[in-house]
């Protein structure tokens, strides 16, 4: 395989997988003793938030590397149960983002989503998942900087709590 700039650099640098901002276990006093970066699933709508994340990329707006995105056509497609499954399988945080109400590409999908996620958020907290681990918001296709801000703030909040060791979920 061709040698790339990255693979050359990789040969030289230590192969640590610590995400930026994760700190040492000691720094996260009170967090469980598991030293791994927090893993966050982001479920985003194709037309606004996925494109907004693209815009952030085009603008090279740096973000922490903890979020992995799942693309759906509309936030209305997102069954709240996906979020529960994500937590059940071990996600440390879940972020949902779609078009601003009124701008939905399918005109109404996010209006339904808005009601469902409000209820889900309240239930999640009740089930023992702290508020900082779940967020749902709206980012439009042109809001690259907002996407950067949302991701940075959310990851920081989750990192403060550290990797999740839930018992009920």
């Amino acid at each position: 395989m061709a040698e790339t700039a990255a693979s050359k650099a990789r040969g030289a640098a230590p192969t640590s997988v610590a995400a930026p901002g994760s700190g040492t276990p000691a720094a996260r006093a009170g967090a469980p003793q598991v030293d791994r970066p927090v893993k966050i699933i982001g479920i985003v709508c194709n037309w606004c938030s996925y494109a907004g994340a693209d815009t952030a990329g085009v603008g090279r707006f740096k973000q922490p590397a903890n979020v992995r995105l799942l693309r759906v056509p509309c936030t209305g497609r997102i069954d709240p149960l996906f979020v529960l499954k994500a937590f059940e399988k071990g996600a440390d945080g879940v972020l949902i983002s779609g078009c601003h109400p009124g701008d939905c590409h399918y005109s109404e999908g996010n209006y339904y989503a808005r009601r469902k996620f409000e209820l889900l958020e309240r239930m999640l907290h009740y089930l023992g998942i702290p508020k900082e681990r779940f967020k749902w918001t709206w980012v439009s296709a042109s809001e690259g900087q907002r996407w950067q801000q949302v991701v940075t703030d959310f990851v920081a909040g989750v990192e403060k709590l550290g990797p999740r060791e839930g018992r009920a979920l």
């Binding site: 693209d54 990329g57 740096k62 973000q63 590397a65 995105l69 799942l70 950067q148």
Partner: peptide, 27 residues
């Protein structure tokens, strides 16, 4: 798998970005 706008363009640490790209490809 979007490993440019969502990965290589927003991170600088090579091992971190590579691991993230790997996750994205797996998904």
């Amino acid at each position: 798998a979007n490993i440019r706008e969502h990965c290589s363009w927003i991170h600088t640490d090579i091992p971190v970005a590579t691991d993230k790209a790997w996750d994205i490809v797996r998904m």
